[in-house]
Design a protein around this nucleic acid. Sequence first.
DNA 1: CTTCTGACGAAAT
DNA 2: CATTTCGCCAGAA
Length: 126
Amino acid sequence: MAKSYKSFDAIYALVREIPPGQVASYGMIESLVQGATARIVGYAMAATPVGQGIPWQRVINSQGKISEREGAARQRKMLEDEGIVFSKTGKVNWTDVRWQGPGEAWLEANNIEFIDFLDAQIKWPG
DNA sequence: CTTCTGACGAAAT
DNA sequence: CATTTCGCCAGAA
């Protein structure tokens, strides 16, 4: 493996669970991975290794928008191809496309430091 | 070691 | 709404 950082592994493992047609915010990932912060999640996405099936495009910011950067247009197209709809202002409807979190079976199979999903959900956007 | 820079977020203004 | 401010912390330089 090229460069792999322990703190990013849990993030990638979780992001990999987001199904097509659904999205999560950096803050949601932050709430679920011990030791991660929104910035770290963004940093991890920027360093996402290719060819490992990690759906980095399904992580957007809390405003429901794709963060500005060079590959934003490409990311948007990938999501639209999955069925995600963006409003005129470039925002998604959280209540429609928000990821509901990893299944319990997966949580048990991965005895990592994941925080309770339902508790964290209270402050999430949407 | 110190500084700076972010695919961020929440609260204040 | 838009902007600013501050907290966050992993890497690069």
